[in-house]
């Protein structure tokens, strides 16, 4: 009789109206949201890129600015999905009780969680597209291959949305998210080759870096912006997908337990 919280996800198209709900909310603040997506990478790339870049002649055969651009696409999409899955997700689940309202309809928790992940990934997609636009406007990349960073942004979004929702499922309050950003997101940004090549790190940290999902995203994005096909692309995509599926499953189990109380 009892539903097993460890049961595999039961997926359906009922997530669509939930995704549309999130989109409708976003549309009301679209202007500020897009501005944020654009301003963040511009500030980073101009500040660090020109400031630090003027001290560094070249990085891995390109200008420092282009080197940084590859990292920025990834960390910007990571941040987008993480903020959405943690803060906005928690608000919808706990603060506004939007989930409670939805769960009284013929929609299940599995649909709600799937919609959260897809919506957060949609935010990443927008963030990734914004960074790419900035890269083009700054004249940094001239290759059609750079368009592949858009599906990559979606994949990075799915990955970090799924991982972020694990924390949302465990969080007693918003304060809890500081741990995740300080202990997971910031190290990820510093260890995964966003600002400097991973090869500069001591071997132990390089091993850690190889396990972290953001490294795999950066390893795909950077060559693409430079007009080259990434090596080991299948492996990198597989790692990101693996984190996505694991994060989705673990967060779903945790949400099922949390909301069955």
């Amino acid at each position: 009789m009892r539903m097993n919280p460890f049961a595999p996800p039961r997926l359906s198209l009922r997530f669509v109206p939930i995704w549309r709900r999130h989109f409708l909310v976003w549309k009301k603040v679209a202007a500020t949201s897009i501005l944020g997506h654009l301003a963040d990478p511009v500030i980073y790339m101009l500040g660090l890129g020109y400031g630090l870049g003027s001290l560094l002649p070249q990085m891995e055969g390109t200008s420092y600015l282009l080197f940084l651009a590859g990292g920025t696409v990834c960390y910007s999409t990571m941040n987008s999905a993480s903020f959405e899955a943690l803060y906005s997700g928690f608000s919808r689940m706990h603060e506004q009780r939007t989930w409670d309202a939805i769960l009284n309809t013929p929609v299940t928790l599995d649909d709600v969680v799937l919609a959260e992940i897809l919506w957060s990934a949609s935010k990443s997609l927008m963030a990734g597209a914004a960074v790419l636009l900035v890269i083009w406007l700054l004249g940094l990349s001239h290759t059609w291959l750079s368009l592949w960073t858009i599906p990559l942004a979606l994949l990075v979004g799915l990955c970090f949305a799924s991982l972020g929702l694990i924390i949302t499922a465990l969080a007693p309050s918003y304060d809890f998210f500081m741990y995740y950003f300080t202990l997971v997101i910031t190290p990820m940004m510093l260890l995964c080759g966003v600002f400097f090549p991973v090869t500069q790190l001591p071997p132990v940290l390089q091993t850690v870096s190889a396990i972290l999902p953001l490294s795999h995203a950066v390893d795909i994005a950077r060559p693409l912006l430079n007009g080259a096909l990434p090596s080991h692309a299948v492996l990198h995509v597989a790692v990101l997908l693996g984190y996505t599926l694991a994060g989705f499953y673990v967060s779903l189990v945790l949400f099922r337990r949390r909301l069955s109380r």
Binding site: L24, V25, I102
Partner: peptide, 27 residues
């Protein structure tokens, strides 16, 4: 239909939008 104990209307939406969005959950 369910009227919950605590209000959980969508604060970002208008009155009519709340009804529209909710109806979509029923397909």
């Amino acid at each position: 239909g369910v009227v919950p104990q605590m209000d959980n209307l969508d604060p970002d939406f208008s009155v009519a939008e709340n009804l529209l969005v909710y109806g979509r959950y029923f397909g």
